[in-house]
Amino acid sequence: MNKKIKVIAAIIVIAGAMFLLIGSGLKNNTGSYLTINEALAVRSSSTDKYIQMEGNLVEGSTKWDAGKIELRFALTDGENKLDIVHNGVKPDNFDSGYPIIVEGRFNSSSEFVAENVKVKCPSKYEAETKEQ
C-alpha cells in the first residue's frame, strides 16, 4: 500500500508540474481574437497586447515597398477600416478576395504591426493556405 501511495504522489507531482507549465505557457503566449471594430476601440490603450483579427482587404489599399520588404494594406469588416503594416512578403492568394487573418500588435503610433498575415481559403476543405 505504501508503494501505491508513493506512485500516486509521483503522479500528482508530475501532473502539478504539467499544470504549472501550461499556466506559464498560457500567460505568455495568449492574445485576443478581436473584431476590427473592437480593435479600433482598444488601439491606443493596448500597445503590447497580442491580437488576432480577420477582415477583408480594402481594394486598392495595398502598398508594397520591395526595397524595405514592407507591405501596407487596410482591412475592413464592411464598415470600419484598419491600416496594417507587415514587414514581410505577401502570402499567396492575398488579393483574391478571401478573408485575411492578421496577428500582431499595435505600435506606439496606433498602427497595427502584423507579425503574421495569413489567407483563409473558404471554399475548399483542406486547402491549406498558410504563410507567414
Binding site: 507549465l21 501550461i22 505557457g25 503566449n29 495568449t30 481574437y33 488576432q52 496577428e103
Partner: peptide, 24 residues
C-alpha cells in the same frame, strides 16, 4: 480548445500562439 473555453468565461475569444505549444 482554450479559445472556446476563454470565450465562454470572458466574452472575448482569446488566441493561443505557437510559442505556447513549443514552450510547454
Amino acid at each position: 480548445i482554450y479559445p472556446l473555453i476563454g470565450e465562454v468565461f470572458t466574452g472575448t475569444r482569446p488566441t493561443v500562439s505557437i510559442p505556447y505549444f513549443n514552450t510547454v
